[in-house]
């Protein structure tokens, strides 16, 4: 899923500026699961805004609304009837959602309430961890199902660096050395011969270095 962190309340207030009619827009997908921008978090931020503005003696209106997704226009269209009643749409979706809402409502001020951070998994309730950087050329078959691009601090492709110590990365003691994990996993699964194969220099054009990416499937088009 896409994981994010909510922005500090002070930063959100600063971005809102003089806007007092706020449509606070949540998303039912990834940001709900990682506890940052679903219906519940929309409720919490709306409550914070109401408490703050009431304390300040301001007149305001905060509408809470959570869409099934903010990355599909069919859902974004559902707020068309009332979006214009508000000064600003404060989106709690990932960066993709914020942008798609902004594209759909060209005259509206659309602000992000969340910093989108990574593609990851749930380690346990309340803890998430990065697993993928969307490089566009997956090599997980070669690396025991553990991604050195996302999980090695240096994205090394052929074994660990000198900063690997007792299975941990030198960046901090909580971070596993991805290459230690890969070697352990290759051993456990009897695939150590994979480690002998040299992975060539990565062609980053399939990733972000190739510019914004687009995917088309003609057969799915209407």
């Amino acid at each position: 899923m896409i994981v994010g962190n909510r922005k500090d309340f002070s930063e959100i207030l600063e971005k809102l500026g003089a806007a007092r009619r706020v449509l606070l827009l949540g998303c039912n997908e990834c940001v709900t699961v990682c506890g940052v921008g679903g219906e519940r978090e929309v409720g919490v931020l709306a409550s914070e805004l109401r408490l703050y503005w009431t304390k300040e003696g301001e007149t305001f209106e905060v509408r809470e609304h959570t869409l099934e997704r903010q990355c599909d226009y069919e859902y974004i269209d559902q707020i068309r009837g009332f979006a214009d009643d508000y000064d600003v749409i404060l989106s709690m979706a990932c960066g993709a959602g914020v942008q798609y809402v902004a594209e759909a409502y060209k005259t509206k001020l659309v602000l992000p309430a969340v910093n989108t951070t990574f593609l990851g998994v749930t380690i346990e309730q309340g803890m998430w961890s990065e697993r993928c950087q969307g490089c566009g050329a997956c090599i997980l078959d070669m690396t025991g199902g553990i991604c050195p691009i996302a999980r090695c601090a240096k994205s090394l492709l052929n074994g660990p660096c000198g900063g690997s110590s007792e299975g941990k990365c030198e960046i901090d003691k909580e971070t596993d050395c991805a290459w230690q994990l890969i070697v352990d996993r290759l051993k456990e699964s009897g695939q150590m011969e994979r480690y002998e194969e040299i992975l060539p220099v990565k062609d980053w054009r399939t990733g972000r270095d190739g510019g914004p990416r687009r995917r088309v499937r003609e057969d799915l088009k209407l």
């Binding site: 519940r40 409720g43 919490v44 409550s47 914070e48 109401r50 408490l51 009431t54």
Partner: peptide
């Protein structure tokens, strides 16, 4: 829940 407490303050 967090929201219950916040609603009380509201």
């Amino acid at each position: 829940d967090v929201l219950l407490i916040l609603r009380a303050f509201e």
